[in-house]
Design a binder for these strands. Sequence first.
DNA 1: AGTAATTTGATAAAATTTTATCTATAAAAA
DNA 2: TTTTTATAGATAAAATTTTATCAAATTACT
Lengths: 216, 216
Amino acid sequence: MSQCALKIDKLPSVRRLPAYLHLLRELSGKGEQFVSSPYLAEKMHIEAILVRKDLELARINGTPRVGYCIADLIKGIEDFLGWGETLDAFLVGVGQLGASILGNRELMNFGLKIVAAFDVNPRKVGATVHGVPVFDSARLEELLSRLQVSIAILCVPAAEAQQVTDVLVASGVKGIWNFTSENLAVPEDVITQKEDLASGLAVLSVKLTRNKPPTH
Amino acid sequence: MSQCALKIDKLPSVRRLPAYLHLLRELSGKGEQFVSSPYLAEKMHIEAILVRKDLELARINGTPRVGYCIADLIKGIEDFLGWGETLDAFLVGVGQLGASILGNRELMNFGLKIVAAFDVNPRKVGATVHGVPVFDSARLEELLSRLQVSIAILCVPAAEAQQVTDVLVASGVKGIWNFTSENLAVPEDVITQKEDLASGLAVLSVKLTRNKPPTH
DNA sequence: AGTAATTTGATAAAATTTTATCTATAAAAA
DNA sequence: TTTTTATAGATAAAATTTTATCAAATTACT
């Protein structure tokens, strides 16, 4: 087995890393130097041992009775996620959702900088939404190749999702953050990440019904 | 072990159910009667056996060589999720994100009906956003007890999240769909579901970096 | 009618994720 | 200084989730 083939999945852990990062930055802002796994566990509502397992990804050593150095942890997590230097991204589809993503100041803290947005609506083209210029979707291909952007945020209506995706892929986009309800078809070397509001609601619904007193 | 204590977790499966529902409704709309696990698997980019495992939750029997009855599946999934009859919900915080959630027509298909929104901004109070009236946040407690709403969608700034949560909990809210970056503290009998944009981005980032050719 | 092909569903295995246990270590307290 | 306490980290166990295997069932084909 080659040194490159080591599987570093741990997707559930990866999913929790941004929450740690958020907490750690908050603590850092308050001037804290160290943090312990029990502290983080309490905040995150998980077990301390799980926190330690998660933080193994950051490859930072803590010290007994003291905890982890917050600055090191932040750096370690950022490095693991590749959020050291921010990546440029395009956003396609400046509807309600697209606009709210453009307005999300926090994204910049997450390794992503949206440098341009695209829409088919002529009344939106030319405008600037939260500091991001909106271009005509017809220029997507042109600007993609010009700016060498490899990440796209997809917020178009479901009916157009696959078609836009095909353009993105053809222009060399390697990662698509998919906010549509479509299951996109892409080549093997393109990564898609689908965000699905409903899945969270499903979890909430199930937990709520399980929480109710039985009705028999 | 009592008959009520049987653990019906399978959270990953639960998370996928809405995606099945979406596909099934689409097929149903096209007049299809039956669907097979290999078909759904291809659409969802997962294995057929996993589809069958997931669909066990709906407690619907398929027939060999034919598949599952789409109408039955839809009903079974809706019932499992408690999405048979829609629940009323309040939305608190009509910012960009809140407004985009109010505008999400699909939510109604997911067992949730937002009957009122709340904001502290006097310029928003009194308005109607996507058909939902916006009230002053000061009236949250009053209207919660009056309308007996048990689900809240939290879209306020992080700094106010816990404070608003305390009001919600005090007024009998049992489920909070949390779109803030705060880890809310709530009593044991209150369910919170935190939506975290960044976690999806983390997965995308990690997969992208793992996808790259090694640099040594 | 008989055969082949496809799909479900049951059972089992494998993989992943979470939790538990224990030792070593560093700091605080006695 | 010695003892106590809290925490990290290693190892192991348990729980969960995904994948595999195979028999039974049903349809389509010969």
